[in-house]
Structure formats: structure tokens, C-alpha cells
Design a protein around this nucleic acid. Structure first.
Lengths: 204, 204
DNA sequence: CATAGGTTGTTTACACTGTCAAGATTTATG
DNA sequence: CATAAATCTTGACAGTGTAAACAACCTATG
């Protein structure tokens, strides 16, 4: 068994797979999505450019793994936001989660892009699929708590919420909203109207 | 003055700039966003790989031009949708535009991605800026017609609409909504609730 | 324990990309 | 017409992802 940080870099890295993932996350944290490169990850891990092949057959596999971790982290952030609002109403919890969603996306814009962009080019690894699915389930539960479980069609309402928060997140990240707009206030306003809108949805 | 399609390619190319743009649009129409390459555009225009430099200093300039045209085309599509619903209420027109928006985005997914993705890497050419701005203005007008011009804060409501349709478009394009979901019906439902939600926005 | 086999890295190579510099060719202009 | 400007070609360079051949290390089996 080899320790993680031996004194003299042995031939084998020790935990190259994890080092590559971490290097990739570091690059994204620096906000340099274009700088995300398989060779650069290898470079940061202190390894030759072809070494990653043993752990990730393709750069898309690495992207899928990092994207999966992004979903997992977002899941934790949303769960924490919901927990913090546990004493409040289901409406307040959903709103808190919506705010946390947009905040996470904008604070980790490069990672967020990697989570959503180019999904087709990802080999859909099981890890990625499971992590992305969990986000959907989490959202559906919060929506169900708002509209009441007996009212069917939770998915349609969850899609409404998903579209709204993902839309805001994308627009803010890409700087697509007009410069003068107070995005925080606008988003808070839209989210505040969400529970009522969900209850009215599909019932004219 | 030279015509667009002379019989014998008299100038070096005649209209290389336009040919490059068209080649790029063709690639996107084929849905192959990854295949969009400056060299491939040059290839399709029947010209050497470095020829584009005279018309587009950088590949991002070509992307910006194509993105601008995408915004222009979308503007026409939305205007047509609004015109077709001219005899109906402002609510109906906004809903029609929303549907047309999502339909355009999903039917031209590669072009839509080029319009929105990587905006930072675009040299922000005047053409692109103007075209993108026009889309925002168009949306704001439709929203203003719904809520009444006297009620201020049109931008906040326009942002709400923009986020919703862009969110749906992005999620559909990236296949992010659950497989079983009837997206057409769900989106129609969400859009139907939009005018009422806009009127209630910000007025508790 | 020795050794055969599999795992992990390195080296080298290839096709591809965007960009640049130098030259050739065609058009426009004084 | 002669000269300048615009346009295109050729060739080069640094990057990229991926593949194949080889080397070093680990491990399990005889």
C-alpha cells in the first residue's frame, strides 16, 4: 500500500484518478472553462499527458465524473438550504432552495456549465446519470410539499420550477440580462411568486 | 459592382465572407456543433484554411456574426407569431411568442447554443450586440402589453419570461427533462399561467 | 520465493485545430 | 499605366485528443 504523498514520486502516482478530478475541479474553480484540458489536468497531476487514459478512456469521461460531482455538491447545497428553512412553510423552503440554486450556479459558473453543457458528448456514466437524477428528485419533493401530494402532475410543476431557476442561472452566468437590472431582487421576486403560480398551474 | 453569383468566380472568391457565414450556418443546421470549425467553413467555401482571416480575424468573430443572424431570425419568427395572434388578446400573443421561442430554439438547437454559449469569448461585434438587444426589446414590448404600461418594472417581468422560456429551451435541448414528460403539454401549461403570474408579480 | 501477468506511466506519433508570417495574385486607385 | 490595397495560398507553430508500443511497478499464483 502506498501513501498519498510519498517523498520521491514513485513511478505510480498513487491516486491519479482522484488527482485528475481534483485538477479539473481546480481549473473550473479558477473560472477558466476553456483552460480545461486533459493534458492540463495531467500536467497538474504531475504525470505524462497520456497517463489519464488508464483512468478515463476519454476526456468526456472525466468531464462526466466532474459533472456528476457538481450535481452532488449542488444537492448538498440545496438540502442545506431546505434544512435551514425547515421551521418555515413548504413555500418558504422551495423559495430558499430556488435562491440557493441560482446562487450555486452563479458562484460555480464554470462547473455549472460543465454539468449541463455537452451532455450528449458525455459518455453517460452511471455516476453522472444517478447524480443528475437525484437533483430532479430533490426538486420534485420540494414541489410536492408545496402543492400537496394529492394534486397530481408533480412533474409538470417541477419542470416549471426547474426551467425558471435554470433559466435565471444561465442568463446571469452568460451576462444575458440587461446591465442595469438588479438581478438579485428580480430573481427573488420571481421566486416569491412561484408557490402560488404552482398551485394555480393547470387549473383554470 | 459585382453580382453575388457570377459565372466564373472572377474575384478570388466573390463573396467569401458571406460564403463562410453560410457554411457555418449549414454546419449548425446539420446539428453538428462540434463540427463547426474555421477550417471546415473554409473548406466548404472552397478556399484555403487561412483565407478567412481577411474577413474574420478570429473564429470568434465568425461565431459572433452567425450568432447575430440567429438572433435576427428568431426576432422574425417571434414577430410572425405575434402577428398571427394579432386579433387575439395581449395575453394570447405573449403565449404564442413563448411557444414560438421554444420551438425555434429546439428546432435550431445548434444555432441556439451558438447564440448563447461562450458569449464572453465572442468579440462583441456591434452586429451581435444590436441583434441580441433587439430580442430583449421585443420581449419587453410583449410583456408591457400584458401588464399595462403604467405598471412599472417591465424589465423585471420580462426577465421572468425570458428565464422561463430560455430555461425550457435549454432543458429540452440538453435532454434534461425526464424522458416520460410530455414537454409540449407541460410547456404550454406553464406559458398559459404566465400572464396572470406577471400581473401578480411584485404585488403581494 | 520466484515468476508470469496485469496495472499504471512514458514515449512517440498522428490528425486535427486556430493563428501567424511571407509570398503570390487579383482588383482598385492615383 | 503604375502603384497601392485587398485577397488568397503556402508553410509553419503551438496546442489538442487519441492511439500504439514499450517500461516500470504491483500482485497473485505455482
Amino acid at each position: 500500500m502506498r501513501r498519498a504523498a510519498p517523498d520521491k514520486r514513485p513511478y505510480h502516482h498513487g491516486d491519479l484518478r482522484e488527482a485528475l478530478v481534483q485538477a479539473g475541479i481546480d481549473i473550473l474553480t479558477e473560472g477558466d472553462l476553456a483552460g480545461f484540458t486533459l493534458r492540463e489536468c495531467a500536467r497538474r497531476a504531475g504525470v505524462s499527458h497520456a497517463a489519464p487514459k488508464n483512468h478515463f478512456p476519454t476526456v468526456d469521461h472525466l468531464k462526466a465524473e466532474i459533472g456528476a460531482r457538481g450535481f452532488e455538491q449542488m444537492h448538498r447545497v440545496l438540502a442545506a438550504a431546505a434544512d435551514a428553512a425547515l421551521s418555515q412553510s413548504a413555500d418558504a423552503r422551495l423559495i430558499a432552495m430556488g435562491k440557493a440554486y441560482v446562487r450555486f450556479a452563479t458562484a460555480n459558473s464554470a462547473a455549472y456549465k460543465m454539468m449541463f453543457r455537452d451532455r450528449d458528448s458525455f459518455e453517460r456514466t452511471p455516476h453522472y446519470v444517478v447524480a443528475a437524477e437525484a437533483a430532479w428528485v430533490q426538486l420534485g419533493e420540494a414541489v410536492a410539499a408545496v402543492i400537496g401530494v394529492e394534486r397530481g402532475d408533480v412533474d409538470a410543476r417541477a419542470a416549471h420550477v426547474f426551467a425558471l431557476v435554470h433559466g435565471f442561472a444561465s442568463l446571469v452566468i452568460d451576462g444575458r440580462l440587461p446591465p442595469g437590472l438588479e438581478t438579485d431582487r428580480v430573481i427573488a421576486q420571481s421566486l416569491a411568486s412561484l408557490p402560488a403560480a404552482l398551485r394555480g398551474l393547470g387549473t383554470p
